[in-house]
């Protein structure tokens, strides 16, 4: 039974990844203009669709669009955890490097428990001030992520108060030039106000609590201008008594083939999820930008 459900799922994911890669290649080979910002200053696509690391939104805006340019990105991501599989597809638009609009569709397959959960995430991020490379304080942005579960029955049964919710966050990112053995170091810190359980896939709020502030941070080293390795940490609320929720962390490696295509691989530790202990696994994400 597992095999029958998994095979088309894998096929769909591969198609999606291949599609993204094709978009990237077509865009790159057609000589479509990349934005003028320096490669990799748009980060990659976080699992919630906003430009960032993998787990956390960063203050940078997606693609490499600069002050008089538009940029667009598309991405597909997949996480293979012990008892779950998360698949995300989405896109974002960068308007003049001032505003980023994003959309992501998340689907998690509950391989042990059975069934699946899906949510849509609509994001908006506004650059408040600064620049990740040129400003001494880096770049600062504020954003919202509005999340809507496709079918809220399971989260509600588990005790979630709502089937939709909105996160708000403030984020700062800064590249430190030649900070470690001559390599550039990327720092990011994000403060998020949220009531989302497991990012929203288990609903919003619950019998143990509601909205609260959580902190997220990441540090990465650009081993080369194309290749960054680092780690990310994301605090989480713990609102549902039926299953303890724990903080998320990752070790990541992202490679920028060009301004158009990047591939991120990561090792995830997402802690307990919905009563199933210590969910760890791998993560792959492919992004095309133009």
């Amino acid at each position: 039974m597992f095999r029958f459900t998994a095979t088309p799922f894998i096929a769909r994911t591969l198609c999606r990844l291949a599609g993204i890669a094709c978009v990237g290649l077509v865009v790159a080979s057609s000589g479509a203009q990349a934005g003028s910002r320096i490669m990799s200053t748009g980060g990659v696509s976080a699992i919630e669709g906003a430009a960032g690391g993998g787990l956390s939104p960063w203050a940078v805006l997606s693609s490499t669009a600069s002050d008089e340019e538009l940029g667009a990105t598309a991405f597909a991501s997949r996480a293979w955890l012990d008892d779950y599989r998360l698949t995300v597809g989405g896109a974002s638009l960068n308007v003049y490097d001032q505003v980023e609009l994003s959309y992501a569709r998340q689907r998690v397959e509950l391989q042990t428990l059975g069934g699946e959960l899906e949510q849509d995430i609509f994001g908006a991020k506004v650059r408040l001030f600064g620049d990740v490379l040129y400003h001494p304080l880096g770049i600062w942005s504020a954003g919202v992520l509005h999340k809507r579960l496709v079918d809220g029955a399971t989260p509600t049964a588990l005790g979630a108060d709502h089937t939709e919710g909105t996160d708000a966050y403030l984020s700062a990112s800064k590249l430190l030039f030649a900070a470690a053995a001559g390599r550039n170091v990327m720092l990011n810190a994000t403060l998020r106000n949220t009531e989302a359980n497991q990012g929203g896939l288990l609903g919003f709020g619950g019998d143990q609590g509601g909205r609260e502030w959580v902190a997220e941070a990441s540090v990465g080293v650009f081993l080369t201008p194309h290749w960054i390795v680092g780690t990310e940490y994301r605090q989480k609320p713990d609102n549902l008594s039926v299953g303890r929720e724990e903080d998320w962390q990752s070790l990541y490696s992202a490679y920028f083939f060009s301004k158009h295509v990047s591939l991120t691989a990561a090792w995830l530790d997402l802690g307990d999820i919905a009563g199933l202990a210590s969910q760890r696994g791998s993560y792959l994400s492919l992004q095309a930008a133009f």
Binding site: T231, D269, A277, S278
Partner: peptide, 28 residues
């Protein structure tokens, strides 16, 4: 065993992160 494993893995992850940072600073 699950708990121990998880704790160990988590500590290893945090230690790896710390070592990365320290190594880079030290390397510097």
């Amino acid at each position: 065993p699950t708990r121990t494993y998880r704790t160990l893995a988590r500590r290893a992850l945090q230690a790896a992160a710390l070592i990365t940072i320290l190594a880079s600073v030290g390397g510097c």
